[in-house]
Nucleic acid binder design. Structure first.
Lengths: 296, 296
DNA sequence: GAAGCAAGGTAAGATTTCCTGATCGTTTTA
DNA sequence: TAAAACGATCAGGAAATCTTACCTTGCTTC
């Protein structure tokens, strides 16, 4: 019913108009002149009306051609805009990526990573959320974010986990604490000290040190509160190294040698759906940066 | 640089989405399933990103595909709209035609002609101007109208004249005038009577009756004024039959037998530029109608 | 759990589309 | 009046595109 107006003949018509003739249009489009002639002829027969005046030496539009010209121009422009946008989207020049990361990663690793990312991909909009690993997991699962950076307790249906780095658990205490100079540290040396649990304490579960948790009566989830309590000398806590704020002068981080507890931090994404081009770029960038930083 | 997004593959993508699978889309588009597969594959490689998830049994969009879908739909819709509009324009279903006609034609012939035209072409907008033959000529020449219906004194560069009908000049007088019952009439019988000239009087120029004009001291261009003066018995005038308002009971039209003066009324259009589709339809319609009315 | 079915992908051949090079008629230019 | 430029036409060939036939995979069914 409707004739299919291919874009190439429309471009021919516009080129003839703009360049002022069939020959000029042919040169401009890198085609031979007969190709232009035939494309226009085909289009005209499809529409049932001539676009250019016949018989006269020069190429001049018919009234119908004049009516068509701006509309052809519009359609071609629309196509070109879409083509450009789609290509930009596909080639990671524009787009949007939503990431969720646990606070330690968000504050310690992401600044550098994102700083270099925005240099490489200045057109991509980035949204960074932070929350505990459970929140990150659920945001990825519900597709609220494209990527998560977190530790995963166990493999799960629908989630793909790519390990990035190992983060060793250690003890944090004030610099005047009796433990402050014991390095390396065995878990048994902790017994008898006041242990403040926090969101990462479940890393101890299943290890020989798990028993320490049962004797702890303090639980603080907020990192700022926790730091303040440690600085006040109220007790000690366990933290992965990445979660320890090194700029706290009065606090010490002492690696736990026995047992050696590590959380595996990695990239979390949904299986099944592939990533948006922007998210692909981000994923690749994160992996490259962390591989790079690990190797040096 | 920019990839050429052909419309057919875009239609394939939309059909797959709408029909829920490659096979269904193939049936819907009357193609074989591999054709769909290959078209999509071609498009994906052109964009550098997959539109559909690979490996899974069903056809599901990637995030990039979801981004593309509404845009593809828009572009295809834009194309279809243009295709439909252009076809409607080309096939005289819509459009606009501007006509100028001399008053006699505009009031005596055009009503019937336009009445049947709007039945055949309900979508075409018509603009009818009227004015004396000089104005009609100039409007056509300046492309202010597509067509003119008038008498033309002489052929002119840039104007194409197609005769439609002959309009005999006669004398108009009140029914109690001495000439009222003289039929046929010779121009010499007019001498001695008060002659009121009007816009059509120049038809007498170059004829044996031209001398009458020099003895006339009255000129009235407005037809209503002229009619009133004739009905008041002030004098007589000459008019083409078409310009004579037959519904004036007190006025008579007497054909001039010697000399037989006729104006040729015809279609005026510009040479060089072809007519808009709507004007083509109008031109054809006018010619058909007047041929028809002349033959009966 | 093997058979059957339906999904999409792949390969080879045929068809259509599209482009090129040569040539012609007409119009404009020198 | 000759020369040049423009657009149309034709035959041949290259490229895209479609079809038929067959394969692989995943799910259903008995």
């Amino acid at each position: 019913m409707l004739p299919e107006l291919k874009l190439q003949p429309l471009r021919c018509v516009l080129a003839i108009i703009d360049q002022g003739g069939f020959h000029a249009a042919a040169k401009h489009l890198h085609r031979s002149q007969p190709a232009i002639s035939m494309a226009v002829g085909e289009l005209e027969s499809r529409l049932g009306q001539a676009l250019f005046e016949k018989g006269s030496g020069k190429a001049r539009l018919t009234p119908f051609g004049q009516w068509c010209e701006p509309r052809f121009r519009e359609l071609v422009a629309h196509h070109d805009r879409l083509s450009r946008d789609a290509l930009a989207m596909a080639s990671h020049q524009v787009g949007r990526v939503d990431i969720a990361a646990v606070p330690s990663v968000a504050s310690r690793l992401m600044p550098d990573i994102l700083a270099s990312f925005v240099v490489d991909y200045p057109g991509i909009e980035i949204n960074l959320h932070d929350g505990n690993s459970e929140l990150v997991r659920s945001m990825v699962l519900k597709a609220e974010v494209d990527l998560g950076i977190t530790s995963l307790w166990q493999a799960e249906e629908g989630l793909d986990f790519t390990p990035l780095l190992q983060d060793a658990v250690g003890v944090v205490c004030r610099d005047d604490h009796p433990l402050a100079d014991c390095d390396p540290l065995h878990w048994r040396e902790l017994s008898g000290h006041t242990l403040i649990r926090n969101g990462t304490s479940r890393l101890l579960e299943g290890s020989p040190a798990a028993g320490l948790l049962t004797h702890s009566t303090l639980y603080v989830s907020n990192m700022i509160s926790l730091t303040a309590m440690l600085e006040a000398g109220i007790g000690i806590t366990t933290l992965p190294r990445l979660a320890f704020q090194e700029e706290r002068r009065r606090l010490r981080f002492i690696a736990l040698a026995e047992p050696l507890l590590e959380r595996r931090i990695g990239l979390l994404s949904r299986t099944g759906v592939s990533l948006s081009p922007a998210a692909q770029a981000m994923r690749q960038h994160v992996m490259a940066r962390l591989d790079h930083s690990r190797s040096r």
